[in-house]
Design a protein around this nucleic acid. Structure first.
Ligand SMILES: [Mn+2]
Ligand SMILES: [Mn+2]
Ligand SMILES: [Zn+2]
Ligand SMILES: [Zn+2]
Lengths: 133, 133
DNA sequence: TTCTGTATTTAGAATAAATCTAATTTAAGA
DNA sequence: TCTTAAATTAGATTTATTCTAAATACAGAA
């Protein structure tokens, strides 16, 4: 599973990369680099370096295998759900859950009564056109 | 200006707080804590501690005088524009500009041809209702 | 198979944002 | 003036991430 995914994206599937990728595929809670290290280190016969976790995560992001998510200051989270989607941050628990892209239909209206929205923000990424002279 | 704003939000307007608040009111580029320190330290007769900058920024956020913005990993930016609005991140320059709330009308459609949108993401903050048993 | 070069991993050092600590200053009120 | 709480300060500390330099792994050539 992880193995083929890596192959298809042109990333050599080393044991460390496979195990980290699989962990992210199985996660639904947007783990941090540290949570990845904790969750993965015992499933390798060798000691896993923190540097390898960061190297791998950066490689995976660059190859489009996972997405980096920065919703809170201080640490980046990682998401194997690469389909376009939004996030809902529970301000009580800090839990970040996925919101399907289609759920946000007319002008970001109702997600449903189970979400008590206090605030939301759309972040656009792109390039600003040069002003025409 | 900054003085009255602080008063009205119940924050004692010390020289450090006034000068930092004024700097943010005059900024339109979402400065970081370090940029605030650099931009402000020479307009005080005393040396300004980094701790004071962070203390003040946290106080201002808590009092609703400014907003903390975390769009990129690693550092928080600060925004004296407290009217609800979105942000546009120029992926070439890193520049973050404000998008008026109303601009995003039907399902986050066109901002106008000057914005070449590569990606966007809506972040919701709120509380998840308990599942009814 | 052995050789060789490149990619990957590793432990630990370095960096950078933010917070903490403990001492000092400020300033309001009795 | 005296008291006291709040605010500020320099510097140390913490935490996330990156860097460095050495060790490993491993594919391809000979
Ligand atoms: Mn602005
Ligand atoms: Mn940091
Ligand atoms: Zn997600
Ligand atoms: Zn803004």
């Amino acid at each position: 599973m992880a193995d083929e995914l890596l192959q298809s994206r042109g990333v050599k599937p080393t044991p460390q990369r496979v195990v980290i990728t699989q962990f992210l595929l199985d996660s639904h809670d947007h783990p941090t680099a540290d949570e990845v290290l904790e969750g993965v280190k015992d499933s390798l016969p060798v000691s896993l370096s923190r540097a390898t976790v960061y190297n791998t995560l950066n490689t995976l992001v660059e190859a489009g295998v996972v997405k980096a998510v920065s919703l809170e200051p201080g640490r980046t989270r990682y998401d194997a759900n690469t389909i376009e989607h939004h996030h809902f941050v529970d301000t009580k628990t800090g839990k970040i859950i996925d919101i399907p892209w289609e759920k946000v239909s007319q002008l970001c209206q109702t997600l449903g009564p189970e979400y008590k929205i206090q605030d939301y923000q759309i972040t656009f990424f792109g390039e600003l056109a040069e002003p025409t002279p």
